[in-house]
Design a protein around this nucleic acid. Structure first.
Lengths: 145, 145
DNA sequence: GTAGGTGCAAATCGTTTGCAGTACA
DNA sequence: TGTACTGCAAACGATTTGCACCTAC
């Protein structure tokens, strides 16, 4: 189950954060996207409803969301980060390296690997990021033409 | 087995890259360090032997080393990358979400999952990204204080 | 001799900070 | 009403680029 806008909003106010229209808009974008979004991408989408929003506000809100556990910061190629809504269940992505299509898939069993890593390194493993890169069917076909 | 200076040098010239004293120095630093080094850290170490080297040269050389497969670029917290001498085999990272420490680990068997995803989606899977997030031992201890 | 490499300075990109005005609780 | 939030502009750090000179092959 995906964290709803409402839940996030409640969690925010519980921690003393105020709920502003800008934050609502950012939360909506994060909560309804299944993609990894860079702060700039979030900004672009929010911008459509709130042309006066600042990129700075997006950065600050994303940081708060990450702090309260509703978003997760992940590392992308090329020195820019992106955020995903933290999903309670495991959700992973299959990304087409040509056209960018993203397919989600649920479930993966890494618990064994996690346990053994935890034992070896002393890390307390909290989550993982798994992403496959490849070519989608369409792009494979196009490549043949 | 860790790639030796000599091997890297040979691979460079095989691909038409020239072997300059600066590149030798950078290769030596990378090849003899077991740590993850940021470009700035490599620069600092190389600087001791080559006070006239530029940071730019370090960046360019590291990129070449990554291209020919003798170094690997990894993602750290805070928007800066580091490089490690590429260790043979497939490697992944364990990242501390608090202090940013990165530990790499070899091996992971995802071939079964890959096959089944490929069958279900028609994707031709080319590579994957696997990263675990958690707390390193030090940060766990600090959290108790 | 020539293509590729170097290093400086300046540009660029993502991200953060200072601050005055604004809005939520 | 008071504190937290916003958004502008400017600062910042990492990385890249343009260019003239240099050097390995």
């Amino acid at each position: 189950m995906r964290p709803t806008e409402k839940k996030i909003a409640v969690a925010l106010s519980e921690r003393g954060y105020k709920l502003t229209p800008q934050r609502r808009a950012i939360i909506r974008v994060i909560a309804t996207s299944s993609d990894h979004l860079t702060p700039a991408a979030v900004y672009e989408r929010v911008y459509q409803d709130h042309p006066h929003i600042g990129l700075v506000t997006v950065y600050r809100t994303l940081e708060i969301l990450a702090q309260i556990g509703f978003a997760r910061r992940i590392h992308g190629e090329g020195g820019c980060h992106s955020y995903v809504a933290a999903l309670p269940g495991h959700r992973h992505h299959l990304v087409c390296s040509n056209c960018g299509t993203v397919i989600d898939f649920p479930g993966c069993d890494l618990s064994e690997l996690e346990r053994s890593l935890s034992r070896q390194t002393g890390f307390k493993i909290e989550s993982h990021l798994l992403e496959f890169l490849g070519r989608c069917q369409d792009c494979q076909k196009k490549a043949l033409i």
